[in-house]
């Protein structure tokens, strides 16, 4: 990429009126192209995202985070994106870390950059149960997708155009995170993990996946692998 690459940030959002304005506004300070996919929220998510300056796409019925992400990625590709960043709407990621996230992809050293909360050495701030679940996810991914990563369920990633076109997200709901890793391994895409900071607020914990739910997600992922 000789000319400056076109970078888009895709934020899937469902009922995130509390945080979306702030998240979009702060991301825009780093990367101007922000796409929010409103997954049929019952609140003002779409309006607030628009006010904050994001391009907003709306799902008329709720299809889940994986589906919303894919819609956003498709739209970014239509807009001619070279690099696509996926970012959570609940304010758990730090916008200023986008730059280090896209670096290996922009330089062409990796097709995919994956955020990892375990690389920066301060994983002690992660609640114990959550850490346990995430460790389980790592083992699960190693066994079933044969890919070694330190954080399997991080919504913060950067994809090259090629990766975005190659990776097929068929899992509408939360199992898409495992699916993306599975696809990376399957297509032999080059990936790199980038340390990121996750802010665990009461809000993001409540909005995020319950630890028990992770078992359900794992089962869903396996069932779908079986019927592909």
């Amino acid at each position: 990429m000789n000319t400056s690459p076109k970078i888009f940030v895709v934020i899937p959002a469902h009922n995130e009126a509390t945080t979306i304005f702030f998240v979009v506004a702060s991301v825009k300070r780093v990367i101007p192209n922000v796409i929010v996919v409103d997954d049929s929220s019952g609140d003002e998510t779409a309006t607030l995202a628009k006010q904050a300056g994001a391009e907003v796409l709306s799902h008329i019925i709720n299809r889940g985070q994986g589906a919303a992400l894919k819609t956003g990625i498709d739209y970014a590709l239509l807009c001619g994106a070279d690099v696509i960043v996926t970012f959570d709407a609940d304010g758990q990621h730090k916008p200023e870390e986008i730059l280090s996230m896209i670096e290996p992809v922009v330089r062409g050293e990796a097709d995919v950059a994956l955020g990892s909360r375990f690389l920066n050495g301060n994983s002690n701030t992660i609640p114990f149960i959550r850490r346990l679940v995430l460790r389980g996810g790592i083992l699960f991914t190693k066994i079933f997708s044969r890919i070694r990563v330190t954080d399997t369920h991080n919504g913060f990633r950067a994809l090259s155009k090629k990766a975005a076109e190659t990776i097929r997200i068929r899992q509408d709901r939360m199992a898409h995170a495992s699916e993306i890793l599975d696809e990376i391994a399957y297509h032999g895409l080059k990936f790199r993990e980038i340390p990121v900071t996750i802010t665990y607020s009461a809000y993001s914990m409540q909005k995020g996946q319950s630890s028990l739910n992770s078992i359900k997600i794992a089962l869903k992922f396996l069932l779908n692998k079986l019927i592909q």
């Binding site: 799902h59 008329i60 019925i61 299809r63 889940g64 819609t71 498709d74």
Partner: peptide
């Protein structure tokens, strides 16, 4: 069901993109 869900998602996606 899985098949129908996927069809539904792709329909919702197409509508969202068209609207945009």
């Amino acid at each position: 069901t899985e098949f129908i869900e996927r069809e539904m998602t792709s329909l919702v996606r197409k509508l969202a993109l068209k609207e945009k």
